[in-house]
């Protein structure tokens, strides 16, 4: 029944003559727990990150792939990118898209999680089935949505017109003012399952006694929600929002398949601009600049997150 392990065995009953050596060996063991993950992450994330930063200062074009030369061109890439109107527009679009998506996904995910935490027939089944939008690869769901949102032949407009909710077909994807909204809506649809699952799990962990106590005190449902549910959910909420932020801000495949960045660049985000610069214009240096901006924004956000949750990260809590 005893298994051989890779870590050095820690004998508790050593002589008191070598406490220091024991302590340092203990620390070593502890670090060994974390080491594989750390090394892996340095290799798979750290290295690309560094490479990307370096590339943003280089003149990196198709020729580089053949000759291996990527001469440093100082801040040329940076000035070119920051001076492009498309970049500033995409910053704004990214902000709108991210905030809109997060808000929508979170609110709806929470509402659904709360709704489904009541026991009724089909609740378990419905919860499982609602995860399906998340399972379909983004490439495919975007293509399906593109068809659904088609101005003239799309099902959504047909429905709206038949129900007399609109008299003119809504230009979901063909109008610059509506296209970004459509992208947000599709992203919300994609993100609800993830939010719902995690928030539901969090809701399950809240002890029933707290709710009972609150109802004994005569608190109404909204008050209970505000004073008990939300505070108890705080750690889960932050996890969901942080992870959601990180993945939404660099969104690419959804937009590419849904609108291609159009019409008239109205749905260009930082992710799509990076893609366009690197893989269509084949100017990898400039593409790297936008990529770095993305990473910087995420880093700032991460710092805020860590500060806000300082207590959770105190030594070995």
């Amino acid at each position: 029944m005893s298994t051989t392990t890779a870590a050095p065995a820690e004998s508790v009953a050593t002589s008191p003559a070598a406490p220091a050596r024991r302590a340092s060996r203990a620390t070593l063991t502890r670090w060994l727990f974390v080491a594989p993950a750390v090394l892996y992450m340095l290799a798979f994330f750290g290295y690309p990150l560094v490479r990307n930063v370096v590339m943003s200062f280089q003149h990196y074009t198709p020729r580089t792939f053949f000759t291996g030369e990527a001469p440093f061109n100082g801040l040329d890439n940076w000035t070119a990118v920051f001076g492009d109107k498309l970049f500033t527009e995409s910053l704004w679009h990214t902000a709108v898209f991210t905030l809109g998506s997060l808000l929508g996904q979170f609110v709806l995910g929470l509402a659904l999680a709360v709704f489904f935490s009541r026991r009724f027939r089909l609740s378990g089944f419905a919860r499982a089935v609602l995860l399906l939008p998340w399972l379909v690869p983004m490439v495919v769901s975007s293509v399906v949505w593109r068809k659904l949102l088609d101005q003239d032949t799309g099902v959504l407009n047909t429905l709206l017109m038949n129900l007399h909710l609109t008299s003119e077909p809504v230009p979901w994807l063909s109008s610059p003012s509506v296209a970004l909204l459509s992208a947000v809506l599709v992203n919300i649809w994609v993100g609800i399952p993830f939010n719902m699952v995690i928030l539901y799990g969090g809701l399950q962990e809240i002890p029933r006694e707290m709710y009972e106590a609150a109802s004994l005190d005569g608190a109404g449902p909204w008050r209970t929600f505000r004073s008990i549910t939300l505070p108890q959910l705080r750690p889960v909420i932050t996890v969901v929002l942080v992870l959601g932020f990180m993945s939404t801000i660099k969104i690419l495949d959804l937009i590419l398949a849904l609108t291609g960045g159009g019409p008239a660049d109205s749905t260009q985000t930082l992710g799509t601009v990076t893609y366009q610069l690197s893989f269509q214009q084949l100017d990898f240096g400039q593409g790297a600049v936008v990529g770095n901006v993305l990473i910087l924004i995420s880093a700032v956000f991460a710092v805020f997150y860590l500060r806000a949750n300082r207590s959770d990260f105190a030594e070995g809590k």
Binding site: M246, S247, G271
Partner: peptide, 8 residues
């Protein structure tokens, strides 16, 4: 967290 920030 940083690892999440790097685009795929």
């Amino acid at each position: 967290l940083i690892t999440q920030m790097v685009p795929g």
